[in-house]
Design a protein around this nucleic acid. Structure first.
Length: 370
DNA sequence: CACCCGTGGCC
DNA sequence: TGGCCAAGGGT
């Protein structure tokens, strides 16, 4: 029932026409994308890959997603395979990508879809699935199923803020933006149109120094006409970001294993692994955090680990003790051998803390030029 | 609607 | 170097 090839009597908006022409020659090649040429030749997108990529791309840059997408599709090539997987294995594979509720919703969504037998194909039905909000439901409907849905993400907001010279932050004009986009969605190639808007925002209409000379919309763009493209989108005032402090405890057994435990199922880093640690408070008077140690031992302070979360910064005092006996492992915890650390569901802040205590753990990836 | 929820790259 | 930013969703 996919209607990628279903024509319509409605005309395509001139701006959509120009954008699709630009997309035909300028589309990015992405592992989860069916190229416009392939699509025209009859290739059909895999809804599973479209959905998985859209979830991973939420608030996450393309380059960060690529290795995770490759890993996931290798481990779980289909939605049925993913639905049958152990949730813990999925959390482990997600470790490092951030926003871990996405991974929990991914598991829940996979089970629902596997039960249904297939993804629903309409925006309204997709919207009911866990982890699919307005953006993702529209994007899957458009890209995977050829539905004329209005896809509005951060890229589209920025593009439209400049097109319309919006005098307010895009978040304050969501309805106006969605309506403006909906009026442009073409009756054919709505999925390409959505991806073209996002490619335009990502490669031409960029947050800083937009490359207006290469933009298919440089003539109609109101901000560009005024030479004020750098003034948009209007920024919302930023909220203050407090700093919290806490303590983390790296217990090293005589064979080199370290003590880990699992975080609570809700809230920050829900369901992820951690080294034992104190509460993270706004202020710490003295070193009372040391009382949060998992057991009594000679804890040496070995340094601090800094980490920035979305809405607060964290400074963790890191303590280490060595030569621990196995009998001292508290219930709910487990000993993890060095060879297993990379595979644990450890978020980045915990990897930093462990690296602080054990410098050979989690070596930074070599990425610089030789 | 305001707030919560990660991470790494960039200038 | 630190603030800003990137294909949002849930509550």
């Amino acid at each position: 029932m996919q209607n990628h090839l279903v024509a319509s009597a409605e005309p395509t908006h001139p701006l959509a026409e120009a954008l699709l022409d630009w997309y035909d020659t300028s589309a990015r090649t992405l592992p989860w994308r069916v190229s416009p040429a392939a699509l025209k030749s009859g290739a059909v997108p895999d809804p599973y890959r479209v959905w998985l990529s859209e979830i991973m791309l939420q608030q996450t840059m393309v380059e960060a997603v690529k290795p995770f997408f490759a890993r996931f599709t290798s481990l779980w090539p289909t939605i049925e395979a993913l639905a049958a997987a152990e949730a813990d294995d999925i959390m482990k594979a997600w470790a490092g990508l951030g926003y871990y509720s996405r991974a929990r919703n991914l598991v829940a969504c996979a089970k629902v879809v596997a039960e249904l037998g297939a993804f629903p194909q309409t925006e309204a039905e997709l919207r009911k699935l866990p982890g699919l909000g307005a953006y993702t439901a529209a994007s899957v409907a458009a890209i995977a199923f050829g539905q004329p849905a209005a896809v509005v993400d951060g890229n589209v907001e920025r593009v439209m803020a400049r097109m319309l010279a919006l005098p307010v932050p895009p978040a304050k004009a969501k309805n106006a933006i969605r309506e403006a986009v909906a009026a442009m969605v073409p009756p054919v190639r709505p999925g390409d149109f959505a991806q073209a808007m996002m490619d335009l925002g990502a490669t031409v209409c960029t947050p800083r120094r937009p490359a207006c000379m290469f933009c298919p919309w440089r003539e109609p763009c109101l901000a560009r006409q005024r030479g004020e493209q750098d003034l948009y989108p209007v920024k919302a005032p930023k909220a203050e970001k407090p700093t919290r402090v806490g303590a983390a405890f790296v217990a090293v057994r005589r064979d080199g294993a370290i003590l880990l435990r699992k975080r609570a199922g809700t809230g920050l880093l829900a369901g992820m692994a951690e080294v034992p640690n104190s509460d993270w408070n706004a202020r710490q008077d003295g070193d009372t955090t040391e009382r949060a140690a998992p057991f009594h031992a000679r804890w040496r302070e070995v340094g601090t680990a800094e980490h920035g979360f979305t809405h607060f910064g964290l400074t963790l005092k890191v303590y280490r003790t060595d030569g621990v006996e196995t009998a001292k492992a508290p219930p709910g915890s487990w000993w993890s051998q060095a060879a297993e650390w990379e595979g644990e569901a450890l978020p980045t802040v915990m990897r930093k803390a462990i690296r602080c205590a054990i410098p050979t753990a989690f070596p930074p990836k070599a990425k610089g030029k030789p």
